[in-house]
Write a protein that binds this DNA or RNA. Structure first.
Lengths: 163, 163
DNA sequence: AAGATCGCGACGAAATCAGCAGCTTCCACG
DNA sequence: CGTGGAAGCTGCTGATTTCGTCGCGATCTT
């Protein structure tokens, strides 16, 4: 796929333990992804070089990524939806197949009345319909799906900090 | 709230028309939010200053934001969930109330068997339980909720490009 | 048609980044 | 205990990038 790979792709469940300094660095970059290393260093009490090394390592490890995020509705994707999926048999291969689709930007395994949730980004209704009916429901192991078409995005933040 | 505000907070439904150059710039920054302006300029055929001015405008307009994103599970939030909510009466005030909660990082109005979807980020089970039972279900207008606790994040990308 | 506005390219000054060497700390191991 | 090694931090230097500003040309405005 043309994607550069998202968080949790490198070490799937690595659960890298983060010390206080790295968490503080992440919080700084959650506020502004382009904040200079020196400014971050001043805020967290490290030298500029140390911050740079840590940031690079966090990126390499896949713990975080620094990217531009947009509201898809404002950049030409007029239809978005969340799809709840019930699977029979192994969930993993279905999750993998979903993750391989370019229009799917988010896949999560869940407990509850769905086994998987996937967020879809489409150009129009026709595209969305084709994706759900022809490609997602056709995946082996998919028992049923339920779609929630997005009407309005109300909140989208990335600054939840760390603990 | 302590949040800096997400996409679509400034001009809610602004739908700013983006020309090809701005779209190309956004795509560059979706790959790497720290890519230098000069490199972006070379890729999209503009000068460094032009890229810089356009990026600044896109940020000011709220069309995009450049931030660090992480898998919350790796930074100390052990419990995440999506909550589907059925509302009676106006949806807007409920959406506003949800958006005001710090633990809620994502709120969207949907068509389908839920009126709203909200993503929650919590520190532990107790925190999650308290949030759903005491604060979300107690909101006026909330008829019922259904929770999907996250077991494993499989894909999370922001590089869907533009159209 | 003159004037105003907007976006872009150009350029210099200042800030930032990248790589490297040296130092300290902390363990593991003999 | 003492030593080797790894990891992390700092300070340094040169290269790169960012930032403010200016002038130009195209497009609108009146």
């Amino acid at each position: 796929m043309g994607h550069s790979g998202g968080v949790a792709n490198r070490d799937r469940n690595a659960s890298v333990p983060l010390d206080a300094a790295s968490k503080a660095i992440i919080e700084q970059l959650q506020e502004d992804g382009r904040r200079p290393y020196a400014a971050i260093g001043k805020a967290v009490g490290l030298s500029e070089a140390a911050v740079r090394q840590r940031v690079q390592k966090l990126l390499d490890q896949g713990v975080m990524q620094i990217v531009a995020v947009t509201d898809p509705l404002t950049v030409g994707f007029t239809r978005q939806a969340m799809v709840g999926i019930r699977v029979e048999g192994d969930i993993e291969p279905v999750a993998d197949a979903l993750a391989a689709l370019d229009e799917v930007d988010y896949v999560v395994c869940t407990a509850g009345s769905f086994d998987l949730l996937a967020e879809l980004v489409c150009e129009d209704d026709e595209h969305l319909l084709e994706l759900i009916n022809k490609r997602i429901r056709a995946l082996p192991g998919v028992r049923s799906t339920e779609s929630f078409v997005y009407l309005k995005l109300r909140k989208q933040t990335y600054t939840w900090g760390t603990r």
